[in-house]
Simulated assay, not measured.
Amino acid sequence: MTKTFSLAGFAVAVLAFAASDAVNRGYDPLAETISRYVNLPHGWLVTVGLLAVAVGSAAVAVRVTGSGWGGWLLRCWAGCVLVTAVFPADPPGNWSRPSVSDGVHGVAAWVGFLALAIAIVRLTVEWRREPAWASKARGLTVLAWASSVAFVLFAVALVDKAALTHTAPLGLVERIVLALNLAWLAVAATAAKSRPSASGTMRRMTSGIAK
């Protein structure tokens, strides 16, 4: 069930964000981040997409319960995405005087992307050692490397935008980072198996001893 929620959430998110870029002509997708599109007539698509990412990511986090602090970082990412959906970003061109909502949105987005970037590296390294993940290890590793490089470029573009130089294609880089992140999460969702509960594990151990 968690696998279905994950993949369905990511599919809805991709469709919502793609539709937002297609129907909203007011901004340049190369320059403006996805969240800024919430201020256009079809801005509800952005909110739907963010909520879908949060639901899908939370389902992956539940599915990999027991993965240590890497799993907790996945939960942090899901929670931050939910916050960005609740607190929308301001329209473009207001970087020097952001609203409270935009401030909360920006902090949550940055913390979320950072948490996920670390989680992807941590969990990929951990899972590569486990036989259960052997079939997906190569895909997870390639996506982890690609998303890490893209995240660094995203951070550079974000600093450039904050400095008001506006030379980096922040919107494009963000879309690439998000696409790679969702791809990694989707692969993790298809590969991961729900961890047994402590009570279930104890019952099996007790049964084995009894036999």
Rank of each mutant, 00 (worst) to 15 (best):
Y37M: 01
L116V: 08
G200S: 15
L116K: 03
I209C: 12
V121C: 03
W127K: 02
D90S: 10
K136T: 14
G68E: 08
A11D: 02
N94S: 12
L185V: 08
F5C: 10
M205K: 10
V53E: 00
R128Y: 13
L143K: 03
L40E: 08
P98W: 02
T2F: 08
S101G: 05
G112Y: 02
V125H: 05
G79H: 06
G56E: 05
V60K: 00
K136Q: 15
H42S: 13
L7Q: 06
V46H: 03
G49K: 00
L178P: 00
A19K: 06
V152N: 09
I120L: 09
A119P: 01
R122Y: 02
P29Q: 09
V125R: 07
G26S: 10
K3I: 14
S99M: 04
L172E: 01
V53H: 00
R129N: 11
P196S: 09
W69L: 10
S148H: 04
K161G: 05
R195L: 10
T84N: 05
E174Y: 09
L82C: 15
V46P: 00
S101R: 06
G26L: 06
L178F: 13
L172P: 05
I176P: 05
V60N: 01
S147E: 06
I176M: 08
V14M: 03
W110K: 03
S147M: 10
A146W: 02
K161T: 13
A58F: 13
G71N: 06
N94H: 14
K211Q: 09
A119D: 02
M202R: 04
D160I: 09
S199Q: 15
G66A: 10
R25W: 14
N181L: 13
F87N: 01
G71A: 11
R63Q: 15
V159K: 07
I34P: 00
I34Q: 04
E130T: 07
M202F: 10
A61I: 13
T84S: 09
V86R: 01
A191V: 11
P169N: 08
W77N: 05
L182D: 00
G68Y: 06
G68R: 12
L74S: 04
N94T: 14
G79K: 01
A162N: 12
T190P: 00
V83C: 07
A54F: 04
A89C: 12
V86F: 04
L82N: 05
A31V: 11
V156Y: 04
S35V: 11
C76N: 03
V173H: 03
W145Y: 13
S101C: 11
S57W: 00
R203H: 13
R75H: 06
V107T: 10
A18D: 09
S101Y: 10
A183T: 07
A132T: 15
V187G: 06
S57D: 05
H42M: 11
A8W: 03
A168L: 12
N39F: 06
V81Y: 01
T124Y: 05
D21F: 15
V104W: 09
H105I: 10
S207N: 14
L15E: 09
L164N: 10
G200K: 12
L40C: 06
G71T: 07
V173D: 00
C80P: 01
T84Q: 02
L153V: 08
K136D: 15
E32T: 09
S57I: 04
V48Y: 03
G93F: 13
A144I: 09
P131K: 08
W77S: 08
L82R: 11
G106I: 14
P91K: 11
